[in-house]
Nucleic acid binder design. Structure first.
Lengths: 121, 121
DNA sequence: CACCTGATTCGACAAACGTCAACATAGACA
DNA sequence: TGTCTATGTTGACGTTTGTCGAATCAGGTG
């Protein structure tokens, strides 16, 4: 196939959309588009396996973890890869290959935006 | 179905599921059961329509809203009812019938628990 | 009582999702 | 070069989810 394909590291659209998107949910009602974008972030954490993977990365020393360190969550390796991809597409994780292994780390600003929305009262 | 400790303010089911579940995700990795319970809460907010309904209730004056006040989110009324039920089952909303109308309000402790999990350093 | 309005439940269907086995790709090393 | 290990991708399958129309329930009013 083509060797000039674009790497979906962190789509500029997602990066821009997430940062200024989120007033606290008590402040005002969300528009349809805001709800669409925001729901996508929550959906990324709505699966038990994904949530475990995310917590494994988030709680790992150094703030990042190799896939090999977090693959023991009770599903097959392709499934782990699939979930990590979803977390990456949602902007919650970033990945980087260093030699043999691929490391994932949390994208703090996106998670902070989610937390801010849940600032009730 | 009832377990050891139940907070008086919450439905037994919801209190059981939510109360002791949530260290910050950076603190340690979630167990399978913790992830199961927690993912259910995030799943409740993972749909755009549900998220809009939730924000409509949360941002409504007095902290509660009649179904009739928030039904205009672009789906049929049975669908609205279905989503409100899901939010209630997840412990995020509580409902009360007063005469003709049914009022929904946010369950602050549950939302606070979710926010605490996203406290990323 | 009958009638009306607000809200939920039921039944059905298409779309989205999670999962796996098989295959493909990337890098290390001999 | 070839082989081995670590990740990612593909294709398929069963389950779950979101949606609606129709029916039903609940409460107020005449």
């Amino acid at each position: 196939m083509s060797n000039t394909k674009v790497l979906p590291l962190l789509e500029p659209e997602a990066a821009e959309a997430v940062a200024p998107c989120c007033p606290p949910l008590t402040e005002r009602a969300l528009s349809a588009e805001e709800a669409e974008r925001t729901a996508a972030m929550f959906k990324a954490l709505s699966d038990p396996v994904r949530l475990r993977l995310f917590s494994l990365v988030a709680s790992h020393e150094g703030g990042e973890a190799c896939v090999c360190d977090i693959s023991d969550v009770g599903v097959s390796q392709p499934t782990v890869s699939h979930h990590l991809k979803k977390l990456k597409e949602a902007g919650l994780l970033a990945s980087e290959r260093r030699g043999t292994w691929v490391y994932y780390r949390v994208e703090p600003s996106v998670v902070a935006a989610m937390a801010q929305m849940l600032k009730i009262a």
